[in-house]
């Protein structure tokens, strides 16, 4: 059997990995109930049931709950009051804005992982070692990563001490409005690029070596090789990494945020999941539900738009 068994093979050979081809139109009446037609449903049924009961249903409960009040208004229908309150709430506005900032960091992670994977692929000295080491932070929990980087990024921490010793200005990375969220995102990239790197490496291993050799014979330099051979060859992998990185950023920042900035200074590094957490802690669960619904919409819309754009972009290239 010579089936390609790597992720990148999968990703590569499919014109649109993960996106199922449109089901050919089957005339409905002629369909017979046979094991062949039922099995696909049985295969997806457990997943569908679990997601309906434990994701979608709580989501609907939450939407319902978001139209009720808190504390003395507990259980009372208040219409859109919670939503109207949120619209003018500073922390909510900051959370919504920051989702956009987060998305700006997605290409950076993809770029970093892609470049490093390229270097490892061309076997820079020590590439085996790097491949192992870079993945290591993926293993660590955000709690320990946050605790360590609190110290490393501190105003008097090692990073600033180093900067100071070579005459660079020192920055209170986690205590300044402009740097707090970007610092958290940078640490998130540090902590997760190993995963993207591995997916990229899987993609590289399916690249046509003959094409690379041909490029070399034609005298293409390294940037040209990347641009004309590697990127087109990896377009599906890139797309896959984009999607997974986006989802990681949209859903996986709570732990780091919590330990590194706690949303501050002011509301500068608030993110949706953190705001919801805070509101629950302030004994305002219904308001938290409204924020959940609102922000879920934002995340879904942005996420789906991004995926669409990506699909189109990679298809055209």
């Amino acid at each position: 059997m010579t089936a390609p068994t790597s992720t990148r093979a999968v990703v590569l050979s499919d014109p649109s990995p993960g996106w199922p081809r449109r089901t050919p139109k089957v005339p409905r009446r002629k369909r017979k109930i046979t094991s062949e037609t039922v099995t696909p449903y049985l295969l997806v049924l457990p997943v569908l049931l679990i997601l309906l009961v434990f994701r979608i249903y709580p989501l609907l409960l939450g939407i319902n709950f978001s139209f009720t009040g808190d504390q003395e208004l507990n259980g009372v229908f208040v219409g859109f009051d919670n939503y109207l309150f949120l619209l003018q709430d500073e922390r909510f506005q900051a959370s919504a804005r920051n989702v956009l900032v987060v998305l700006l960091f997605v290409p950076i992670e993809v770029l970093v992982a892609g470049l490093l994977a390229t270097f490892i692929f061309i076997k820079v000295p020590g590439h085996r070692f790097y491949r192992s080491v870079y993945f290591l932070p993926v293993v660590l929990s955000p709690i320990i990563i946050g605790a360590i980087f609190n110290i490393v990024l501190g105003a008097n921490g090692p990073l600033n001490a180093m900067a100071d010793s070579v005459g660079l200005p020192t920055v209170d990375y986690l205590g300044q409005t402009m740097t707090a969220l970007p610092s958290v995102l940078a640490v998130h990239i540090w902590a997760t690029f190993g995963m993207a790197l591995v997916i990229f490496l899987a993609g590289f291993s399916t690249l046509d070596q003959q094409l690379l050799d041909a490029a070399k014979i034609d005298g293409a330099n390294f940037p040209q090789t990347i641009w004309h051979v590697i990127i087109p060859g990896l377009s599906q992998t890139i797309q896959f990494v984009f999607v997974t990185t986006t989802i990681g950023m949209l859903t996986g920042l709570f732990g780091l945020l919590y330990t590194m900035t706690a949303g501050g200074p002011g509301a500068a590094s608030y993110l949706p999941e953190f705001l919801i957490w805070k509101l629950n802690g302030e004994a305002r669960p219904a308001l938290a539900s409204a924020a959940s619904v609102f922000l879920l919409l934002i995340v879904l819309v942005i996420g789906l738009i991004q995926i669409r754009v990506l699909r189109r972009a990679t298809k055209e290239s």
Partner: peptide
């Protein structure tokens, strides 16, 4: 459904989920 549920941060459904 898969793609959509993938993007739900746990905090969003935290309280109703625990209730369930």
């Amino acid at each position: 459904v898969i793609l959509g549920t993938m993007m739900i941060p746990f905090q969003v459904i935290m309280v109703p989920f625990i209730k369930l």
